[in-house]
Amino acid sequence: MAAPISIAVPGQLLGQASDFLPGSGTHIHNSKLYASILGPISKTIPPKSQGPQKRLTKITPAEPARPATVSIERGISLTSAKDGGKKAEVLPDVNSTVLCKVTRIAPKQASVAILVVGETVLDGEWQGLIRVQDVRATEKDKVKIFESFKPGDIVRAVVISLGDQSNYYLSTASNSLGVIMAASEAGNAMYPVSWKEYKDPETGVSESRKVAKPF
């Protein structure tokens, strides 16, 4: 039907819903698959699973061919900016990894501004909230927000809920999540020394943070 580089406009028929799986930028209406954004059509065919074909003594029916996923790439829907790689706006969604900056801390929660979702730098600033019980997975009752974050820290977190009217709820309860960049009281960039400590290279003072595993 579609050549690999053909361009779809919203509402363009892409095929029967039974033949393809709907990817991003598509929707289903009356069991037919339609495009919903402007962009190039891409088809990804799932790799054939290496199943029990090795057993030559048993005859199994051929595995039903899995349908290809049809999606419309969102990347090109951008204004004619010179940087050439600006992606269209993507919203934070549940389970997406985000980079954010701590704006305010309180005993029960840290307010953050979400700056990056996945690989995409956002245009607007979306507000997020890391509650005290979501900072780490163990010993949740001993967590203190002011020993985990400071305003200005850059934090890697995962979205756990769309949250309330203005905030997304975020969590750093994993080894790979937490503060990835921090500045000391003196204003110097610090380096992590343990899972809960950052150290200032000039003054030698350590400060406590919820540190993200560097690698």
């Binding site: 509402g11 339609y34 402007l38 951008l78």
Partner: peptide
Amino acid sequence: IADAGIDCVDV
């Protein structure tokens, strides 16, 4: 709207 990349059912 199509240029902005907002999902639409049709043009």
